[in-house]
């Protein structure tokens, strides 16, 4: 990582309140994100993978400060240091909504659901123009035109249309154009292709890769589809129950996963090839615990095949492994999973 850091997430925790009693008092809290730290370097793509409920979307929305508006009473800890283009460093978690507003042009988001992420009452031109209008940019129409053409839409034909006239893939392109309108430094893509059809998914992935190069973007790519993340990302962080259990180069994490959870995750992905031998697949048992009944010690120990009694005592920290990634496991399985590379 020769490039400088753009975003440093330091020991961040996000706890949702649990209301109870007649007066709706806070009776407890569920930690959706639990002491997460990582650094995002300029120009790289970090893939954030995990299953539903692992806290990956919460983390993404915490960085861009969306939760404060929609969910009251959420408690945050830690620091999210953002290195602004002018050289100053701000802690995004410490900002008030008003102070956050100037940062908005530097951090943008691409949403998962192309159907709910566009205001059905606005035309495409209005949707893409909105961020420019907020910043009072001049010559907006021309910029909107360029952006729409860049993401593969026809500005003349489609600028005045409404979202309901577009297919899912086209809507996602509109969402991408909106996110790029202000030339942000950091784009958080929250499952941008998981709602799309296979044949459209690859179009959008290619578009994102091209645009990243062209606009010199730093991407935080949140997804549950490992094969997409592996294709898109330079590095991958695997989350389980609010914690990062493995972090490393995409190839290393995907080919030689170090954490038992990552191993199970990688081997669970269905391979589109009937001839692949599935007999040595690693299955994990049971169900993901909710953040409310989080196990003591290692969060994964209740479902881990190689858990030992002592796993209940200490919370494992990320430690480097021989294959080069960081793994949060007290007894990392020595022999790596023998997974035949998909393309072999």
């Amino acid at each position: 990582m020769s490039t400088p850091a753009l975003l440093e997430v330091r020991d961040v925790s996000v706890a949702y309140p649990i209301w109870g009693g007649i007066f709706r008092r806070r009776v407890g809290e569920g930690r959706a994100v639990d002491h997460v730290s990582f650094t995002l370097h300029k120009g790289e793509t970090l893939g954030l993978v995990g299953e539903s409920g692992c806290g990956k979307s919460t983390l993404a929305k915490t960085i861009i400060a969306l939760l404060r508006h929609t969910v009251p009473g959420v408690r945050y800890e830690g620091q999210i240091l953002f290195h602004r283009p002018d050289g100053s460093v701000v802690d995004l978690l410490a900002l008030t909504p008003r102070q956050m507003r100037p940062m908005r042009s530097e951090i943008q988001m691409i949403f998962q659901d192309p159907f709910s992420s566009l205001n059905p009452r606005m035309t495409v031109a209005e949707i893409v123009e909105a961020p420019l209008r907020v910043r009072r940019v001049k010559g907006r129409r021309a910029i909107v035109r360029d952006l729409l053409a860049r993401v593969g839409l026809d500005p003349d034909e489609q600028m005045g249309r409404y979202p309901h006239e577009f297919s899912g893939g086209q809507r996602q392109r509109i969402g991408i154009a909106r996110a790029l309108a202000l030339r942000p430094e950091l784009v958080i893509a929250d499952e941008p292709v998981s709602a799309l059809d296979v044949s459209v998914q690859s179009q959008v992935i290619n578009l994102l890769v091209e645009l990243q190069r062209e606009f010199d973007l730093t991407l935080l790519f949140v997804a549950h589809d490992l094969s997409v993340v592996e294709y898109m990302s330079d590095r991958i962080a695997v989350m389980y129950l609010g914690r990062i259990v493995e972090l490393g180069n995409a190839d290393a994490v995907y080919q030689t996963p170090g954490h038992p959870y990552t191993q199970a995750l990688v081997s669970s992905v269905p391979v589109p090839d009937p001839n692949v031998d599935r007999s040595n697949r690693i299955q994990i048992k049971g169900e993901i615990p909710t953040p409310l009944n989080r196990p003591t010690g290692c969060p994964f120990r209740t479902r881990c095949n190689i858990a030992r009694p002592s796993c209940a005592d200490t919370v494992p920290e990320l430690e480097p492994t021989p294959t080069g990634q960081l793994v949060a496991c007290l007894f990392p399985p020595g022999g790596q999973m023998e997974r035949p590379p998909a393309e072999a």
Partner: peptide, 17 residues
Amino acid sequence: SLPSRHRKGDGPLYTIP
């Protein structure tokens, strides 16, 4: 067009236009 069938470093994914 499946990313899992794609060899990394082979350029962009195949797409159906």
